[in-house]
């Protein structure tokens, strides 16, 4: 009896706190039916926002994955003075407010920033333009691949890589044949987290973007301007699309659990 009551309480709580928001998104997006909702997606500014988001995400994911793999290799396979400091540094963006993560790039590349005017004279625009958005996104997504790889690679130890070295494998062969296949689940998860965060980043991008519709608006920024412009259906349709993309990516993380049962060590 108590147990049944606790179950109801748990699911009630989950329903109220966690399931209500996605339901609201759908309800608002479809408040005038499905056709008006789909129609809002044909807006050129909306399409530009989707394209920009994908572009920024790809750049952030590719660069931070390369960095993340090399940094995890460095930080788990070598013990050198300064390693502890680097371990703290690579996790730092996680504890910095998104707005501050955007602000720092204005301090460097904004009109009043250190190098902003110099770059401006050379015709290079970083703040309030796409490069600024990319920099801010790279900053906030920097830790994800490293921090998922490090605990796993630390736990796996160096034995397999040492065996590979003695068998004559070089750095890239070890990385691609031994380390990354062994850590593929963690790598996959880290890449997905990077993707989700890159797609959905709002605060940091908002500060450096300049909010020019069709040019420097990513999906979250476009949602904001639609919402503030009382275009509720359009805002929530875009929000539904973005939330769907992001949730798919996040829930894909549990995919390897289902697929790789046969190969993984059961213990």
């Amino acid at each position: 009896m108590t147990r049944f009551f606790l179950w109801c309480a748990t699911w009630g709580l989950i329903g109220l706190v966690l399931l209500m928001p996605p339901a609201v998104i759908l309800a608002e997006a479809l408040s005038h039916g499905i056709m008006p909702a789909l129609k809002t997606l044909q807006d050129p500014d909306g399409i530009a926002a989707i394209e920009l988001t994908l572009e920024v995400t790809v750049v952030a994911v590719v660069l931070n994955t390369i960095f993340g793999i090399l940094a995890a290799w460095l930080l788990t396979r070598f013990r050198f003075p300064g390693r502890g400091l680097l371990l703290v540094l690579v996790e730092l963006p996680l504890s910095i407010s998104p707005v501050v993560s955007g602000l720092v790039w204005l301090l460097l590349f904004g009109a009043q920033g250190w190098w902003g005017s110099a770059l401006d004279r050379m015709g290079i625009q970083i703040a309030f333009a796409v490069p600024g958005i990319i920099l801010a996104t790279l900053f906030v997504t920097l830790p994800y691949v490293v921090r998922t790889l490090i605990p796993l690679m630390e736990q796996q130890g160096r034995d397999a890589e040492e065996a590979a070295t003695l068998a004559g494998a070089g750095f890239w062969q070890i990385l691609f044949r031994v380390t990354l296949p062994g850590a593929r689940v963690a790598l996959f998860s880290g890449v997905l987290m990077t993707t989700a965060r890159a797609m959905g980043e709002f605060g940091a991008v908002s500060v450096v973007s300049g909010h020019i519709p069709g040019l420097t608006e990513t999906m979250p920024l476009h949602i904001e301007s639609l919402y503030n412009g009382y275009q509720t259906v359009a805002a929530f349709t875009m929000a539904a699309l973005l939330a769907f993309m992001s949730m798919t990516v996040v829930f894909l993380r549990s995919l390897p659990d289902f697929m790789n049962r046969t190969r993984e060590d059961p213990s």
Binding site: L18, L19, F202, A239, V250
Partner: peptide, 19 residues
């Protein structure tokens, strides 16, 4: 339920904001 716990992390902040 376990998967749903991550939902707030999965929904982009701007989307949870307007929602």
């Amino acid at each position: 339920a376990d998967a749903l716990i991550d939902l707030p992390l999965a929904i982009p902040t701007a989307v949870s904001g307007i929602t």
